[in-house]
């Protein structure tokens, strides 16, 4: 195994926690990949905020129906049992506590559960989409992300410096190096790569990693 998980492997790891029949919203980009790695025998029902529950994979090129897209504006397909609804009902599912899990990307996650994932600063055109809504209401709000930025700065931090998406909203983080719960305003380490010492992991993390109980090895298949 290499020194860190690939994006695909992070998505695989997060997918293992989705239970059969769970209602799950996957954010645009890396989180969308989670759908590919549902364990055998488990079938989540995916929600997209533009008004579909229970959609399937992308159709073959040339067979797209552009009235049937996901939140990333990509064509999807119908599954038996798909439901359509308007945008107000869609976000009622989100804020009303009806989703079991929302899986989102991140620029920064803080130990108090704050998330920054929509803006890297004041330049350019601001755009939020559904991110600010999606962090509220789901029973679990899960982040999947590289452990550090491209220039090796921690993405798990004491306090977010970028514009916030939500306050105290994240419950778990899957990174390229570790699995971390957010409990009582602290990062609690659950899994780490076996080849990495706790000190090494702490040195690329911007806030204290609390060890509270067993820390398991983070094991994923080659993908």
């Amino acid at each position: 195994m290499s020194t860190k998980l690939s994006a695909t492997q992070i998505a695989w790891r997060a997918a293992q926690e989705i239970s059969d029949g769970a209602y799950v919203n996957l954010g645009i980009g890396l989180p969308e990949m989670v759908a590919r790695f549902q364990p055998p025998g488990r079938q989540a029902i995916f929600h997209t905020e533009n008004g579909i529950l229970g959609f399937g994979e992308a159709p073959p090129a040339g067979e797209e129906d552009w009235d049937l897209i996901n939140a990333g504006k990509k064509a999807v397909t119908l599954l038996p049992g798909t439901a359509f609804f308007h945008h107000a009902d869609s976000f009622a599912m989100v804020r009303g506590g009806h989703l079991d899990m929302a899986i989102l990307g991140a620029f920064e996650v803080a130990e108090n559960g704050d998330l920054a994932n929509w803006s890297t600063g004041p330049k350019g055109v601001p755009a939020v989409g559904g991110a600010l809504d999606l962090v509220h209401g789901a029973k679990q709000v899960v982040v999947i992300t590289e452990h550090t930025t491209k220039d090796n700065k921690p993405k798990l931090v004491k306090r977010c410096s970028l514009p916030l998406t939500g306050v105290g909203c994240v419950t778990r983080v899957y990174t390229s190096l570790a699995v971390v719960d957010i409990q009582g305003g602290r990062f609690v380490l659950r899994e780490k790569l076996a080849a990495m010492s706790l000190d090494e992991l702490q040195s690329v993390t911007g806030a204290e990693l609390v060890v509270n109980g067993r820390v398991a090895d983070l094991v994923v298949p080659e993908l």
């Binding site: 989100v94 055109v125 601001p126 600010l132 809504d133």
Partner: peptide, 24 residues
Amino acid sequence: FTERYLAGQIELELVPQGTLAERI
């Protein structure tokens, strides 16, 4: 849109998507 926005030729009110739906 981007060119007009950055040139200050169009005003933008940015609203979270679920809030936009519920406001309507």
